[in-house]
Computed example of a mutant assay.
Amino acid sequence: MADKQQVHIVLVGFMGTGKSTVSQLLARRLDCETIDVDAEIERREGRSIPEIFAHRGEASFRKAETAALADVLSHEERKVIATGGGAVLAPSNCELMLDSALVVALTADAEQIISRVSQDASRPLLQGDLRQRVNQLMEDRKHAYDFAHLTIDTSKLNAHEVVDKIVAFLQQ
């Protein structure tokens, strides 16, 4: 990893852990741009993520995700990058992130995640029994975020407290 003061910061973690909110606050604090990879995919593809999943399937979405992530990480100036929860499923994405960024994994317990995503119908992987799907996906991805340089449990923290922890890590 390059110098912590200059490098991109990539937020990874399960859906509902706060990546999008934290990325915006952190970018403001660090006076840099934030990029949400899911929003970048939607911009490039001209359709929403649920539409991509429905029309082209998860494999096609994952390819678009890798391409968007690689492009965003190629920028010279520092960015705070929020990834989708499944971006870590491809080992090549994890290597790409580790090579060009400080990777921060945000975690939360299942009850917090269920509470945070229960009103969001735009998450294609949560169709059906929400509690069962969240628990199954969390089990499937139990170690998927272990590669991160820093892990922060957001279950009992607000977004500002999470940002404070990341900034403190950067200043070490």
Rank of each mutant, 00 (worst) to 15 (best):
G16F: 03
E42C: 09
C32S: 03
R62S: 09
K63N: 12
R43S: 13
R28D: 14
I52Y: 00
A59T: 13
V12E: 03
D31G: 06
M15E: 05
V7I: 11
S48P: 02
D36H: 02
H8T: 08
A70Y: 01
G57I: 10
R62D: 10
V37W: 02
S23L: 12
S60M: 10
V10H: 03
A39I: 01
I35Y: 04
E42N: 09
L25Y: 14
A68P: 03
K4M: 12
C32F: 04
V7H: 02
I41S: 04
Q5G: 04
D31T: 10
S48K: 07
S23G: 14
R29Y: 06
R56A: 15
A59L: 13
V72E: 00
R28P: 00
A70V: 06
S20P: 08
S60Y: 13
A27R: 11
V37D: 08
L11V: 09
D36G: 09
R47D: 01
G13M: 05
Q5F: 02
R62T: 09
T21M: 10
S60H: 15
G13T: 06
G57Y: 12
E65F: 03
D38F: 06
I52G: 01
I49L: 04
L25F: 13
A59P: 04
L11H: 05
S23T: 12
H55A: 11
E33W: 07
S20I: 06
E40H: 14
P50H: 08
D38W: 07
A54F: 03
C32P: 07
H8V: 10
H55G: 13
E40M: 15
A54E: 14
A59G: 09
S23V: 13
Q5M: 07
R43C: 08
D38L: 04
